[in-house]
Write a protein that binds this DNA or RNA. Structure first.
Lengths: 340, 340
DNA sequence: ACTGGCACTCGTTACAGTCGAGTGCCAGGC
DNA sequence: GCCTGGCACTCGACTGTAACGAGTGCCAGT
């Protein structure tokens, strides 16, 4: 357990070198590149201890050391020095995000920006519907038995759904339905709507009842239960950087996981606040991602998160830089959305 | 030049075997697996001719033959026997597509289905806006100087955009704007709207003029010029099948191309009718995709295409099967959309 | 507690040799 | 004239051996 300062410094040096060179690092090259003030032999002793404690390991007997997931964890928790963004990066962020015309645009620009800056796969969740409130509901008759139902949320999200009515409904009734629904629901958070919707059905006059019942079912189904959450992806090509050494040779499991919206949401969308989370290799609950690390955070106005965003890359990743970038981008996006 | 029937049969056999085994095929194994009725030596002579004509090649001197892009082309053009879908596949298609609740749902299900059936990367274009007509336009006031503008097309597509007004506009005026815009534009094809929009501005009463001008700009910008077209992707994990032999070792260029919507649209979205197109390796204009083949087709009611869909895979691909699947899926989707 | 020295490990590289799938060509047969 | 069996040849894949060297663990000395 006794990890004195020098041993920690050695671990840090190993992580930094390995991340930079992608090659197991030996005692000699370590003392050459870092001013540790001791000889290789001493470093070797420290390494032996670090290995015993499970922070580093040797790929083969006669090779240098490589950090383990546990080693990265210690590095991230205790050895990371904050790395401020370069002015160039700040400028890139601003330039990239100004001029976004709507939510879709903001999300797409953000995810591309994040992928570009971190050179990793970026994931951005659309502002969570559950945490949005209703700004307006619109019902557009498509035919006498079909309605297009459109909801606009205060976060700028627009969701629509086709509603198949049980019986023809005249236009006047649609107007009534629209008024009723808006009166009752506008302003309320989507997570709080179910009882309100229930009340709507019960209070509606008999001739509107069947239509309202169908409408409410669809409403609850679409907006509250089902694919209420959406995400955007970018930078999958970055997975191929660093040859095939990262991700133990196969991109397949990673690509599979990336295609599962549910999985990705679980990964980056759980944050309730704007705290940054780092999941390293094994710590990940998703089997397919055991060889990857994820840096994620919530974004939103202030410290309440509207949604999550983050990046996914090899465990061998520049954690300080990535963390800084993810945070900065999240802050900018939060501000941008607050303006709407 | 002189390619008699047997030589063609040899080429077909080579393509089929190579696609199945992913290994260069030699004369001996060829006569074993196919009833060609001649000896290996004869086949070798035919092969020499085929190679001279550029239809096949040898990876190394002492290896079997592999089809060239040109060979695949000949195979697709003249040697493909129609491969009917298996009942299981038909069932899969139907089961997968019933129960789709709206356009988004249809597109997502389709793209996943296509990826699953062909075991390749699938791309589906949303019904082209240019070929849709306006069903309804909605203006929702967000603040006095901001409108959310929502367009519903007859294909089920819903597009929205935030409009920043030059000066505050009272609710009554918004109602007027909504009525005017709908009166003029509903029913017309989006590709034909520019002059109509122009007329709208010119005919509108003075106090509505500034708002209408802004609105029209945004309208034209969003719906006609810019990212009017959208696509959905699925099955990128399938790129990793067949080891790293396909795509000459690196997925990077492929993944990069897949992320560029513009590129993908060019690839599958150009079809005006429901003809099937096959692009093999080199024939592809996009450099990044020189090692890939694309099978695409238009889909829509009848033979007019609303949009395109297709799959992308290695040149070493089961063309007959893929073509059959792509066509079948396109037909089903076309029918499904026609019902709406 | 650190250091220099030393023997040891083991993956990498180079080289030689064998094996065998596959070829091209040629002489002979239907 | 076209097809076939036979044969010599090519060349990548695989195997075994040897030299190399980066890196280690350990120990005696300061």
């Amino acid at each position: 357990m006794g990890l004195d300062d020098r041993k920690l410094a050695v671990l840090r040096a190993i992580v930094e070198d390995y991340v930079a060179t992608q090659e197991p690092v030996g005692s000699k090259s370590l003392v050459e590149r870092h001013q540790l003030g001791v000889s290789p032999a001493t470093v070797r002793n420290d390494m032996a201890v670090l290995e015993e404690e499970g922070y580093i390991r040797q790929p083969h007997t006669s090779a240098g050391r490589v950090p383990t997931d546990r080693g990265y964890r210690l590095f991230v928790d205790r050895l990371t020095r904050v790395k401020p963004l370069s002015p160039a990066e700040r400028r890139a962020i601003e330039r990239f995000l100004v001029g976004a015309v709507d939510l879709d645009d903001v999300v797409h620009r953000t995810v591309r920006l994040l992928a570009q800056l971190t050179r990793q796969v970026a994931v951005v969740q659309y502002p969570s519907l559950a945490r949005s409130s209703v700004r307006h509901l619109e019902l557009v008759p498509i035919s006498t038995t079909r309605l297009m139902f459109v909801m606009i949320a205060d976060t700028g999200r627009v969701e629509q759904r086709l509603v198949e009515l049980p019986a023809p409904v005249p236009d006047d009734d649609v107007t009534d339905l629209r008024r009723l629904v808006n009166e009752k629901l506008v302003g309320s958070r989507l997570s709080e709507t179910p009882p309100l919707v229930q009340a709507l059905v019960e209070e509606s006059s008999p001739h509107l009842r069947p239509a309202m019942t169908t409408l409410s079912t669809v409403l609850l189904e679409t907006l509250v239960e089902r694919h209420e959450e959406r995400i955007a992806l970018a930078g999958t090509a970055n997975l191929t950087r660093g040859g095939l050494l990262d991700f133990q040779g196969s991109l397949r499991p990673i690509l599979e996981a990336l295609e599962e919206e549910v999985v990705m949401l679980k990964l980056i969308g759980e944050a309730e606040s704007t705290t940054t989370r780092v999941l390293i290799g094994d710590e990940n609950e998703i089997d397919n991602l055991r060889a990857a690390s994820v840096v994620s955070t919530g974004y939103g106005p202030g410290t309440t998160a509207l949604g999550g965003l983050g990046v996914l890359g090899p465990t061998r990743m520049d954690y300080p830089g990535t963390i800084a970038t993810v945070r900065a981008v999240a802050r900018y996006v939060g501000e941008l959305l607050a303006q709407n």
